[in-house]
């Protein structure tokens, strides 16, 4: 195979990886602050994807434009979920929280299955078959837009945590729960806000993802797992690590799919996870484990 094919596949893998990275970023933010593992993460993403598909097929609304309202809907869903269901579980054992979210995930997947059926749904945008040529490189417009959108949202998120007062307050909660309480921060509200922000991340991600793949209900657990693998690979609690891990996994999937068969591409993802756990269990950019 000529080298250009590899290059093209690598670029498309990186662009997909950026969207993965944003998804994982949402998970990482929630875990880093609320210390709850959102086992329904991928399922929330499929909800967003179905929203995007439904809006597109009914009103021809472009998913990239709908990104904002869909993120808002998921923001609200995340807020309500945290406030209503998860918050009473904050001081429960880890496995209890985990099972709570397993239950939520189970309900979400199968509710989607009942609502939309098992068939794959997708969108056909006007630019679906367009592409940009950069020298020998041919980049799908879909992937280019999705990758660009992911970078924009991630950049916004970084800025939010660095420069806004609320962002700083959330980071304070993550660093020192008791301290945050002492200085009078409304930790409950900040937790709900964080969960909502993480959910909005996957909401935005879902709108981008429909440009890349068709959605089916079982995609939910697959993405949940993928998000976990990325976060563990990148380093639990590291925002940059999540993005880096996403790109790495996207790249691996693309190249692995090219070299072997596309249906076996996630095996390479797991191989990376095992390698990381063997040689750098704290993840690429994670802090050392004690």
């Amino acid at each position: 195979m000529p080298a250009e094919i590899y290059l093209n596949v690598a670029v498309s893998g990186v662009l997909t990886g950026l969207v993965y990275g944003l998804m994982a970023l949402g998970l990482s933010v929630i875990f880093g602050v609320v210390r709850v593992v959102n086992f329904a993460h991928g399922e929330m993403m499929t909800i967003a994807m179905y929203l995007a598909v439904a809006l597109f097929s009914a009103y021809k609304l472009d998913p990239l434009v709908m990104l904002v309202p869909i993120a808002a809907v998921l923001f609200a869903l995340g807020y309500v979920l945290q406030r209503g269901l998860i918050n009473p579980f904050i001081n429960r054992p880890e496995h209890s929280q985990f099972m709570l979210l397993v239950a939520v995930a189970l309900i979400m997947v199968n509710a989607l299955l009942i609502a939309f059926g098992p068939d794959a749904r997708g969108v056909q945008t006007s630019y679906a078959f367009a592409s940009f040529a950069l020298g020998p490189l041919i980049v799908d417009a879909n992937k280019a837009y999705a990758g660009l959108a992911a970078v924009t949202v991630a950049g916004g998120l970084f800025a939010f945590f660095r420069y806004t007062l609320t962002g700083k307050a959330i980071r304070a909660c993550a660093d020192n729960y008791a301290g945050a309480l002492v200085v009078g921060l409304d930790v409950k509200r900040l937790y709900a806000l964080t969960f909502a922000i993480g959910s909005a991340c996957v909401g935005a991600c879902g709108s981008m993802m429909v440009l890349l793949v068709d959605v089916t209900p079982p995609l939910g657990p697959t993405y949940t797992l993928l998000a976990f693998v990325i976060v563990i690979t990148g380093g639990l609690g590291s925002m940059a690590g999540a993005l880096l891990g996403g790109v790495l996994i996207g790249l691996t999937e693309a190249v692995g799919g090219l070299l072997f068969t596309p249906s076996a591409k996630s095996m390479f993802t797991f191989a990376i996870l095992v390698v990381v756990l063997l040689f750098r269990p704290q993840g690429l950019l994670g802090k050392r484990l004690t």
Partner: peptide
């Protein structure tokens, strides 16, 4: 090995089951 059970362990168990699912598929 690293004393990190919990989340890591749960995720690893799912990952291996998925790995087997795809592997056996092929």
């Amino acid at each position: 090995r690293f004393g990190v059970g919990g989340v890591y362990f749960a995720i690893l168990t799912i990952a291996f089951a998925e790995f087997a699912r795809i592997g056996f598929d092929h």
